[in-house]
Design a protein around this nucleic acid. Structure first.
Lengths: 145, 145
DNA sequence: CTACAAGCTAGAGTCGGCTCTAGATCAAGC
DNA sequence: GCTTGATCTAGAGCCGACTCTAGCTTGTAG
């Protein structure tokens, strides 16, 4: 079942430009074949791989790292430890990202809650603003440098 | 207690370049004062505000959004609802980010676990590689398009 | 037969968020 | 007096990951 670049674009969510770009960057596991007149032909596996790529990308893995991974896979058996290490490494980075975001979220929530409370009490004008840098209700103070 | 740009850089973790850039972009709540000969003077509040900024930035808020927030604050009382809305909006975005990352993490873990299992069993060569696109142990299939 | 959509290539442009450079000024220590 | 290092300004440069353009070819529907 052959797929055109347009179909792959629709189903993968990546633009046709991006697909050509990914190919140029060596991000496809298998070389993309062409029809007699030069049009790209994709298959279901490509979509599966692209879905993986998209997950890796949207969790912050760079195209360079994905390329490294694909290159290892292309070399065939013998470097599975490296590939696994690459995945584990990224796993840890994602965990770290989540922890950091969670921390940011706590701060943002705290600030927003303080705001909400003051607004609800109609004392919004007691909130921090530049002309009252000493305001007690300075919710920015929540974040200690 | 006056602080030089160098001290603020050290304590905030932002480069002196970034500090000047932030100022040019209107990200400081209070206008940055200068000594007689033109050097910037900062205060503790600036550090506090920068710490907030850093949290917002590292949770993905754009400088443009931060500027909008600061502009509201500079206008003084009367727009607290807008400021609160801005914070709540970002809060939701961070929550969404965390959810997405968590989803990616699940996929990555699954893939890595499959890999690890095969490697442990010494059957690494049964794993997906480009020359065996039909390999049953294709851990990429974990991610359905 | 012709219009129009979809594809092709090479390469330029974009965007955000800094980073870096050049060339000048200034303060403090030797 | 002189060097060193911090600061200043304006503006150029960079990076990643696309996106878009121009100019051309090809396939299909009416």
């Amino acid at each position: 079942m052959d797929l055109s670049i347009g179909e792959v674009s629709k189903r993968s969510g990546l633009s046709v430009h991006a697909l050509r770009f990914y190919e140029k960057e060596g991000l496809f596991a298998n070389p993309v074949r062409r029809t007699a007149n030069g049009r790209r032909i994709y298959h279901e596996e490509d979509l599966e791989w692209l879905a993986s790529c998209t997950k890796l990308r949207s969790s912050g893995m760079s195209l360079a790292a994905i390329r490294r991974y694909v290159e290892l896979a292309r070399q065939g058996a013998g470097n599975e430890h490296e590939r696994l290490a690459l995945l584990r490494d990224h796993e840890q980075q994602v965990e770290a990202q989540i922890r950091e975001l969670q921390e940011c979220l706590d701060v943002i929530r705290y600030k927003a809650d303080v705001y909400a409370e003051y607004v609800a009490r109609g004392q919004a004008d007691e909130l921090w603003n530049p002309s009252r840098p000493d305001a007690e209700a300075d919710c920015h103070r929540a974040v200690r440098p």
